[in-house]
């Protein structure tokens, strides 16, 4: 079980319908090393991202973040670029699953996505969905994970969750 961590970071804002080709262009998909992908994360939106984003910073997006391809390289790039969390008005479904599966906290919070200012300092509890804007002194309640997804998230991702389940005999191989 992963210990619950409260996240702190500065806000980077991006718009709506940020697709996975923008998050990590396919020309970089001949490699799946997290550090390489991170170096090219959102490079047409935030050029030289690794020079700018400090570990822990928080990406805040509009609606339908992560639409497009199923490439897990996208949340991997976001995570390894230093972002501790993504908050958005809504997420595309494959990106949402992928983020939880690889242990990238991700929160649906339409009001935050609409009102928060670039550069604000946030405090985020991914388990409760509580988001505090320390710069403005405001608090917001983001959506909580459904219980089943919280289990995966709390285990540290889908692989750790599955490994545990297999050990406990909860999953039998069919073949």
């Amino acid at each position: 079980m992963m210990k619950n961590v409260i996240l702190h970071g500065k806000v980077w804002k991006v718009g709506s319908d940020i697709d996975t080709d923008v998050i990590i262009p396919a020309r970089y998909l001949n490699c799946s090393e997290p550090e390489f992908l991170a170096a090219h994360c959102l490079e047409d939106v935030i050029p030289q991202i690794l020079m700018k984003v400090k570990p822990g910073d928080i990406l805040v997006a509009g609606k339908n973040f992560g639409c497009g391809s199923s490439r897990e390289h996208a949340p991997v790039a976001v995570k390894h670029a230093g972002f501790s969390c993504v908050i958005a008005e809504s997420f595309a479904r494959i990106f949402y699953r992928n983020a939880i599966n690889i242990g990238l906290p991700i929160i649906v919070a339409p009001e935050v996505a609409r009102t928060i200012k670039e550069g604000s300092l946030l405090e985020v509890d991914p388990v409760t969905g509580m988001i505090r804007d320390l710069s403005e002194g405001k608090a917001y309640q983001g959506e909580q994970y459904p219980p089943f997804m919280l289990e995966i998230f709390s285990a540290g991702g889908l692989i750790a969750y599955t490994r545990e389940k297999i050990k406990r005999g909860g999953v039998k191989q069919l073949g």
């Binding site: 949340p75 494959i94 699953r97 690889i102």
Partner: peptide, 13 residues
């Protein structure tokens, strides 16, 4: 799905 979901699918069916 993403690669991790697929990996678990390959393992567990």
């Amino acid at each position: 799905v993403g690669s991790t979901d697929l990996a678990v699918g390959m393992a567990t069916g």
